[in-house]
């Protein structure tokens, strides 16, 4: 009888313990394995902690709450691009950078209005293509180019949080 009790107790404890491992966030050095974006000598690193002190004062700011959970996706609008952050603990980290116009280029030199030929010349042919979207991936970062009739109409850096 005691054996049955011990067995049941062990099963319950095992369920509690074996499934008790939470996900531990690994701090990675994203800088060497990721696409980054440079604007006015500031290097924007996706997944890095974002503050306006560090990256410069935005001209507009908005926030989007989720349907039920705490935490906000924050959007910082600069003259030519928009940075969106996601909450991570007590900080906000860079989730995406979206180009607003053709006045700026990616670090590799592609801007809105360039052709797909320019793109593959600069970035090569290792991309994923879906509809009219070309995605280049480096580590946890992506650069997404949308084109219309082979002319790039949208550029966005994104990060797998």
């Amino acid at each position: 009888m005691k054996n049955i009790s011990k067995l049941l107790l062990t099963i319950m404890i095992a369920i509690l313990l074996t499934t008790g491992c939470g996900k531990k966030e690994k701090e990675e050095n994203v800088k060497n394995t990721a696409y980054t974006f440079v604007y006015e000598d500031k290097e924007f690193i996706l997944g890095d902690v974002f503050t306006e002190d560090k990256y410069g004062k935005a001209i507009d700011y908005s926030e989007v709450a989720s349907c039920a959970f705490e935490g906000l996706d924050k959007t910082y609008t600069y003259e030519h691009f928009v940075v969106t952050t996601y909450p991570s603990g007590n900080t906000d980290k860079i989730m995406s950078i979206y180009f607003n116009d053709s006045e700026i280029s990616t670090t590799e030199g592609i801007k809105i209005g360039d052709s797909i030929n320019d793109l593959t010349t600069k970035y090569g042919n290792e991309y994923e293509e879906e509809d009219n979207l070309y995605t280049y991936t480096l580590g946890k970062t992506h650069i997404k180019f949308i084109h219309e009739n082979d002319i790039i109409t949208s550029i966005e850096y994104t990060y797998d949080a």
Binding site: S62, T77, Y98, D131, S154
Partner: peptide
């Protein structure tokens, strides 16, 4: 309402 994120171009 104050401001919202940009209206992004979608691939599809």
């Amino acid at each position: 309402y104050t401001s919202l994120p940009p209206k992004k171009v979608l691939a599809n």
